[in-house]
Amino acid sequence: MSEATPVKKGKGTVFVRMEICKGCSFCIDFCPTHCIEFSREFNAKGYHFPVLPRPEDCTGCDLCGLYCPDFAIYGVKFKDIEKRRQAAAPEPLVPAQP
């Protein structure tokens, strides 16, 4: 199960499996747009995991995914999700922010 930021602000978003993240910060330090940060919360193992406080800057380039040694994060471009959405369901992809 993943956590996502479905608020469609930037060009893409990331999915984080926070329960397997080991808090190494590779994704955070090498994200080209510096849009992710550590959470304040801990996961069950006691690590901080990445969150997306600046979704407008995420391009969905998946560089974080290529860096993550724990396979705990990956990025997706909205245009790729959109392609899938059109192929599948007509409903809007992303719910409005609560």
Binding site: M1, S2, E3, A4, T5, P6, V7, F15, V16, E37, F38, S39, R40, E41, V51, L52, P53, V76, I81, R84, R85, A88, A89, L93, P95, Q97, P98
Partner: peptide
């Protein structure tokens, strides 16, 4: 301040991501 990302477990499944 950091906030937990809004949770959408179905998004991945729904679109086969």
């Amino acid at each position: 301040m950091n906030e937990l990302p809004s949770f959408d477990a179905n998004l991945e499944q729904e679109f086969g991501l």
